[in-house]
Design a protein around this nucleic acid. Structure first.
Lengths: 328, 328
DNA sequence: AACCGGGTGGCAACCGATTGCCATTAATTG
DNA sequence: CAATTAATGGCAATCGGTTGCCACCCGGTT
């Protein structure tokens, strides 16, 4: 079922069929309707590759995640998927396995087969990112790079809220449990933490870096206890949940002996034990916004973007993993 | 950077470049190496659309899931992604939003732009599925249809194990908490449950259907209690976790007053409260196997498949949501 | 010397759209 | 009524590869 079949059937040229379908106002109403009817009749679906080849538009967007099993991305994927479908675009999912080289390689490979890419938690150096952004529409998530559009979840602000929360509960020794050093968000959160602590004349301890998996949580929990801190703010929920688990294993009471605050509010944060106090991030919304920005950018290529960065607010969700500081 | 640039640079025809790159034995060694060197030099990446257009192969596989936020699919996506990357193929992720119409529509739409599709939890009627499978390589997951290759997780066998487990703990009144009626796995599990119960001269109660989200768990929990059963086996973990939550809210002790057994062992099943006794399914493996079957099928189109269905074993993982039946 | 066959590489058609350009026709206007 | 303009639709080139077919070269046979 090609455009030619329809052309033959309706007695017009293929080019007319093409126009009738993609630039309806370029063809006479009756002709157009005849063609559209035939297309519907024959259940015609344009060939994506052919269209892409001549027009240069693939109507496909790639979403690069560092690890498809990290629940943080589920929401992002979902949000992106929703918004893309609404625009009739397809989603190419790419797992970079947390490797900058692989990320770069795959980006190069798909470069010509997508209209743009969304980089969630890119591990690429700023320099490389700029180069890529120059030759391919890019939107990053949680990563701020000059001249690259981005959606940033304002977890630094959330971290401050978390510190206020903990300090108000009497905590004085609070540690940051760090994630991957290559993560931009990780450093941003750490900075926010130090700032917030300084405001109260306190200094934050820091342990890590740790991998972002629950198993890394065991190591992290032990390290956290060693700092003598009465509370820990973790890079993300996955790590926090792993920590809770290890603490339970060691018989350490949460929040009685130590409070734990996570980040992101992923699936599971509300039903782990104890339910996790965490920074709730509008993850799904971030996915939607990232797609919107990208599509918007695609429509106005060449124009200077009105806004390069969208900052999404977070808020602290208090559950049962945080409580008053223990008396010494 | 096209094949023509390379041709010009090396002084051969474009066709020769094409062969040197995709059918290396069709061209002389020295010519080939010269071309390959030039291609590497210029960082040449073949244009996927153009290749697809003339060869018919897109090197892309679509994975259709009914709901991208269901953690069950995370593992599946991951497994599929891994195996696809290994083969150098791309993954198109499609969310059918649990709608058969949408599923059908999207399948039609991508039909020409992928080499094959993997249907995870298809909601399509058997008839439709057969039609689609005839015009497009298809592998289903957890769905058995004549003449369609499939990967099936043997949860019916697992359900039997679960029943044995519960019966041995003294439970006599056990209910099945059903999922979506359009789910093939749902019916399979229910049948297995009845069979297993009958073996002990017992009859299973059934409640539902319920949606597969945690919020449906509240309704399901209440319905479950109403049956007077001392144990419930649920369609999946999501539902089970929702039930646990509601039971905690109502102050019902698990497993003291009622035991709950889930299905799939998704992310979260091990750290919810209490940790969930569940059927551990090799989800990631299912994703890998599905891809392998599909790619294998693609390579031998026309040949009759040696094996049409792969059955993956499950096992019961006993945690703390199941225990001895309460004395009445 | 005539013949044969395998190894190489070029030519050109093709995959299925899109799109710039032009010809035709109809409508508008002075 | 001639002339200008707008609307419409066809022609053909193009996107970047793939592939069937054929020509050529060369060494080996008979």
């Amino acid at each position: 079922m090609t455009i030619n079949d329809i052309a033959a059937l309706t007695g017009v040229a293929a080019s007319t069929v093409s126009r009738a379908l993609s630039r309806p106002d370029r063809v006479n109403r009756v002709t157009r309707e005849r063609i559209q009817a035939a297309a519907r009749e024959l259940n015609y679906v344009p060939n994506t590759q052919a269209r892409a080849l001549s027009s240069g538009r693939t109507e496909t967007v790639a979403l690069l995640v560092s690890d498809a099993t990290n629940p943080f991305y589920f929401g992002l994927i979902r949000g992106a998927q929703q918004q893309l479908r609404a625009a009739g675009h397809a989603l190419l999912l790419i797992d970079t396995e947390d490797s900058a080289e692989l990320e770069n390689h795959l980006l190069h490979k798909v470069r010509r087969s997508v209209d743009g890419v969304i980089l969630a938690a890119s591990r690429l150096p700023e320099q490389t990112l700029s180069v890529i952004a120059a030759e391919l529409p890019v939107v990053t998530v949680n990563r701020n790079v000059a001249r690259v559009r981005s959606v940033v979840i304002d977890s630094p602000d959330g971290v401050m809220q978390a510190v206020e929360h903990l300090v108000s509960l009497g905590h004085r020794a609070i540690a940051y449990v760090a994630g991957p050093p290559s993560s931009w968000a990780n450093e941003a959160r750490w900075r926010a933490m130090r700032t917030a602590m300084a405001r109260h004349g306190l200094t934050a301890a820091r342990v890590g870096p740790f991998g972002v998996s629950r198993s890394s949580g065991s190591v992290a929990a032990d390290a956290l206890l060693n700092t003598g801190a009465t509370a820990g703010v973790t890079f993300n929920d996955l790590l926090a949940i792993g920590i809770l688990r290890r603490l339970a294993e060691r018989g350490v009471d949460v929040p009685g002996e130590i409070s734990v605050v996570g980040c992101d509010d992923i699936f599971g944060a509300d039903f782990c034990s104890p339910p996790l106090t965490t920074l709730t991030a509008p993850i799904e919304q971030a996915g939607r916004v990232a797609v919107s920005m990208l599509l918007d950018h695609l429509e106005h290529l060449g124009e200077t973007a009105s806004r390069q960065t969208v900052l999404l607010p977070t808020h602290l969700t208090i559950r049962q993993s945080s409580g008053p500081a223990p008396r010494r």
